[in-house]
Structures are given as structure tokens and as C-alpha cells.
Design a protein around this nucleic acid. Structure first.
Lengths: 92, 92
DNA sequence: GTCAAACTTCGATGCCTGTCGTACGATGAG
DNA sequence: CTCATCGTACGACAGGCATCGAAGTTTGAC
């Protein structure tokens, strides 16, 4: 989990996903997050985040919707996500 | 910083250092923390933590004393260290 | 002065991983 | 049907990093 968050690109994904909420139909597509790397690398990072349990993915047509698993994460690691996100925002 | 904490050995060091406080003369020596790796690897991890600003090191005779920089870290990343330590303890 | 203990430094090694390009599959629009 | 769009899979490559052993350094003890 810490490993998943310790990559700059992935941290960027997580901060970009944060404002989108977790409910049905919410979330952002992969391409909405735009990162300065190739599409295959983006796929790679999303996979790492999914396998670490940080995000959920579901299909909506040809797009893949990603959303943070805030409630699960807050239950497992209370306060961690908030602290990381706050620190990330301050460092911009 | 997240990278420094995302290694199991280093996380172990940090959790072991946590109860020792930050004041003058406090802290633990490198060998007090015992890790299942060779001395050179231990040195390596302590260096990473120091360069990431997580710990302070000072010499006391032949021993090297390490202590967490809690106050600095709490100022820079509020709540982060607490959240990580809490999560680490729960995972034992 | 000698010796042991505590760390460090250095080089080597092997794995992990971030990155890319290319080729591929799936889905909706025309 | 055809095509563009979105994302995936795979292979390759480079760099990073955790680990080790061996040799060196510094400090305190006797």
C-alpha cells in the first residue's frame, strides 16, 4: 500500500481521483487523469493501484471508470489517505 | 518520504524508534533495532531514512544514536507518521 | 599499545519496476 | 460495416535498489 502510493505518478492519480467520490457512476476515466507518460504506462500504474486495493475499476462503454476506495482504505488505515493527500496537495 | 517508509525494513526501524523519543541523549543505537539483514544493509537503510529527513543521527562514542524527527515530520506531513505507525502496529 | 565493538564504504549481484512501442481487443458512432 | 477511440497485453530495456561480503575506520576498554 505505501509502496503503491510512493510513486509520483500514482500519487498524482490518487490526488486526481480524490474529488470524484466513490458512488455508482462516479469516478474518472483513465484518460481524464492525464499523465505525462505513455498509455501503456498509465495502464500499468492503474493496475498497481487496483492490485494494492487503492482503487476500483469498472467499465462504462469503452471507458474505464476509476474511483478511490476511500471507505475501505479509511477502515484499514485510518487517517493515512487523508494525511497523504493533504501532504501531496501542499507540495504543489 | 513515502518511498523511505515503503520498505518493510525501514518501516520496522521507524516503529522501533518511535517509543524512544526525540530529546537529547535519547534514541536507539543501530544494533538495538535488530533486523534480519547484514550490518551493511542496516547502514544503508539508516542512511536512506536520514537523507529522507525521517531520523536524526549523532555519535555517542562508538555507537550511533538514531531518533525520529517527530516534530519536524508532524509539521511537514501532519498526521502521516501517526497513521503509518498505527497501521504498521496493527499489521503485526 | 592492543584489541574488540560498532558502523561505514565499496564493489558486485540480482531482482523489481517504471518506461516505451507495437500490436491487439472491445465498444460506440457514422 | 467501418472506423476511431479507449484501454490492454506483451516484450524489451534501463535504472534503481535491497542485499551481501570483505576490508577499513573510529572509539572506548584493558
Amino acid at each position: 500500500m505505501l509502496h503503491a502510493l510512493s510513486d509520483p505518478m500514482r500519487l498524482r492519480i490518487v490526488t486526481a481521483l480524490d474529488p470524484h467520490g466513490e458512488g455508482e457512476g462516479l469516478g474518472a476515466t483513465c484518460s481524464e487523469v492525464d499523465l505525462p507518460v505513455s498509455p501503456s504506462t498509465v495502464t500499468h500504474h492503474f493496475r498497481v493501484l487496483r492490485e494494492a486495493g487503492v482503487i476500483n475499476q469498472c467499465y462504462r462503454g469503452t471507458a474505464k471508470i476509476n474511483c478511490l476506495r476511500r471507505t475501505d482504505l479509511d477502515a484499514l488505515y485510518p487517517g493515512l489517505l487523508d494525511a497523504v493527500l493533504a501532504a501531496a496537495k501542499r507540495e504543489l
